[in-house]
């Protein structure tokens, strides 16, 4: 059970937006998340797989079979919609049994399978209720059960958590992951919430203007973003414009950095990228070069903003030429920071 996009392009009639030459593969049991700003084309990706639109070029392949021309009802894919789309006139078990009903499963069997499935998402005791009696999280569970009850070839989740309260989101996202792992089904998750994607996906694809910018594991995306856009979209980051001055030294708008410049020559324009938690505060008493083996870049300035977030503080340090964002669990005043060479990555210049 693999889901594949092969060089797929699609533009909406009379518009220039769409997606361009996308190739993706989701293996059995794998959860691929697609993230991107609104209008980036991520919803189109889902619609193409579900069969709501057909590609202009390229193929959609499920298990080595080209399904590009098949209607949604012939594709056997479970879809969980943003607003769940539970049928308001059917009881919960009837909602879950519906895909079995249209496949001609006898009433007794489809009822028992529906109840079974409702049990797997913890909703069996509400089987005779109508959807209107349910909270958002409960509707979500039923929608998940309905999308999985007919053993689909893939599971498609369209912003599944966006309609829920923040407190419920974490719980539901773990629930989705649990059910997905238990059924071992290839899953496509479309979301604008990068935290949601990083926390449950095996692989994350970042979309921008209809094109795939980067695809990788959450860790790859966070630690080695392909460019400034990904770095800025996934997590918090410091991004400074600069130029390679000599081997191991980059001159930037806020001063010079000691870092690895391999693969780049002096004079190359680069973007210097550092995660805020990798910026280390330096105590005033500490001597400037504190005996570390690795060379570090040092900066001093004044605190522009100091946000207390419980376990950490998020500080903006104003230095000559710009701003350094850092996160620290230290409670002391911060005036100087150092950035170890291995915390710095050079990205293509904007």
């Amino acid at each position: 059970m693999t889901l594949k996009y092969e060089n797929v392009s699609f533009t909406y009639p009379g518009a220039t937006t769409g997606i361009f030459d996308i190739s993706l593969e989701i293996g059995k049991g794998e959860l691929l998340a697609i993230i991107g700003a609104s209008g980036s084309g991520k919803s189109t990706i889902l619609k193409l797989l579900a069969g709501f639109v057909s590609p202009d070029r390229g193929r959609i392949v499920i298990d080595d079979k080209d399904v590009s021309a098949l209607s949604p009802e012939a594709r056997r894919l479970g879809v969980v919609f943003q607003n769940y789309a539970l049928f308001p006139h059917m009881r919960l078990w009837e909602n879950v049994a519906y895909p079995l009903k249209v496949r001609g499963v006898a009433k007794g069997e489809r009822q028992s399978r529906a109840l079974d499935m409702l049990g797997r998402v913890g909703m069996r005791n509400r089987a005779d209720d109508l959807p209107a009696a349910l909270s958002g999280g409960q509707q979500q569970r039923v929608a998940l059960a309905r999308a999985l009850v007919f053993d689909p070839q893939g599971l498609l989740l369209d912003e599944p958590l966006s309609a829920l309260d923040a407190s419920l989101r974490v719980e539901m996202r773990d629930e989705i992951l649990r059910v997905q792992r238990a059924s071992g089904i290839a899953t496509l998750l479309v979301t604008h919430d990068q935290e949601e994607a990083l926390s449950i996906a095996d692989k994350v694809a970042v979309m921008r203007d209809g094109r795939l910018v980067q695809i990788g594991t959450p860790r790859e995306l966070y630690e080695t973003p392909a460019n400034a856009y990904v770095a800025g979209f996934v997590g918090q980051s410091n991004l400074w414009q600069g130029k390679v001055r000599s081997h191991g030294v980059v001159e930037s708008e806020i001063g010079s950095f000691a870092c690895d410049t391999q693969g780049r020559s002096p004079g190359d324009a680069v973007t210097v990228f550092v995660r805020p938690e990798r910026v280390l505060p330096v105590a005033d008493s500490e001597p400037k070069s504190a005996g570390g083996e690795l060379p570090a870049s040092h900066f001093s300035g004044v605190v522009d903003a100091d946000r207390y977030l419980g376990p950490i503080r998020r500080i903006d340090l104003k230095v000559s030429g710009g701003l350094i964002r850092l996160e620290t669990h230290l409670r002391d005043a911060v005036t100087s920071v150092r950035i170890p060479a291995d915390a710095i990555r050079l990205l293509p210049a904007n």
Binding site: E73, R75, G78, V79, F81
Partner: peptide
């Protein structure tokens, strides 16, 4: 929305 959902569930 409901018709789309029904289509993905296999309804003709």
């Amino acid at each position: 929305e409901y018709e789309h959902a029904a289509a993905t569930l296999g309804a003709s």
